[in-house]
């Protein structure tokens, strides 16, 4: 674990974790994802400030942080969805930005935004997702039915995705991300808008995936979710990874939320003074 709120960027864990300079060969055998000095600026705003992180193979890794901390930007750069201004990323040993095709074969992505053909039905969406991944049509259909059934979408499989609720949208996107049985799964707020029963199912699916050797990386601002699911965690604030490592080391015996507030700080607005008027009309 490294605390680096104001110091130099976090260095990847272990000597085998660094990316080779010549391109796409595998980094350390224990690293599923290696992020090195990733930088992204949006005009004057630095969204991600040279962060580095190593995610061990077979781990359930949570990235937490307040709104605007840079979690989504980091995830998008790590998955090849957003071009970084600097730095490198390798997923399962493949450089995401020099060999994006091979890297995307190895990963599943549940993005933060809707990047789907919403006019297709859920079943069709999975079918074409598999076909465009060059998968065999019979295999795609078999896996689609399995995923639809487990994620409780089988009855809505022939409805248009555009008519799905937000929670159903998350589930069909998760099904699309799982269809090719990825080695590394990136999930941006996977349980947002999902009902408790489905959330439980999703947690079960993800835990099972990790048990079988895959790596799951999820970003969330719900501490409870991350604390319950993940064995590793990184806390981000203002574009920097403040701390990262195995959950017990990061928590230091405290609840994750308390540790988070300790590291990131609580809001400083004079809530009582400013909102003293609230509720006057009910008094």
């Amino acid at each position: 674990m490294t605390d680096s709120p104001h110091g130099p960027p976090f260095q990847p864990v272990g000597s085998g974790a660094s990316l080779p300079q010549d391109g796409t060969t595998a980094p350390g055998a224990h690293a599923a994802v290696v992020i090195q000095a990733l930088v992204k600026r949006f005009g004057p705003k630095v969204a991600v400030a040279g962060d580095s992180l190593t995610i061990p193979r077979g781990s359930f890794y949570g990235i937490v942080g307040p709104n605007g901390a840079g979690k989504t930007t980091l995830m998008r750069m790590a998955t090849g969805l957003l071009r970084p201004d600097g730095g490198r990323v390798a997923v399962d040993g493949v450089d995401v930005w020099t060999d994006p095709v091979d890297a995307k074969r190895r990963m599943g992505i549940l993005p933060d935004e809707r990047r789907m053909f919403e006019r297709l039905t859920g079943r069709e969406l999975l079918l074409y997702n598999g076909l465009l991944r060059n998968m065999d049509e019979g295999l795609v259909k078999k896996r689609s039915e399995d995923l639809l059934a487990v994620l409780e979408l089988d009855r809505d499989g022939d409805n248009l995705v555009v008519d799905y609720s937000s929670g159903m949208h998350k589930k069909i996107a998760l099904a699309a991300a799982l269809l090719h049985d990825p080695r590394v799964l990136f999930l941006d707020e996977p349980l947002e808008s999902v009902d408790p029963v489905s959330a439980r199912t999703i947690r079960h699916v993800l835990s099972r995936l990790v048990e079988r050797g895959a790596t799951v990386v999820l970003s969330s601002h719900v501490m409870e979710t991350v604390e319950r699911l993940c064995d590793h965690v990184a806390i981000m604030a203002s574009g920097r990874i403040v701390t990262a490592g195995p959950m017990p080391e990061v928590r230091q015996g405290k609840a994750l939320e308390d540790r988070f507030v300790e590291l990131v700080g609580a809001g400083s607005a004079d809530e009582e003074g400013r909102l003293g008027w609230l509720g006057d009309s009910s008094a």
Binding site: V101, I109, F117, E118, R133, A176
Partner: peptide, 15 residues
């Protein structure tokens, strides 16, 4: 035309 929107294909490993 959604079918021609390249962003829709960004998650896929397409050459």
């Amino acid at each position: 035309d959604a079918a021609l929107d390249p962003v829709k294909f960004v998650l896929l490993p397409l050459k």
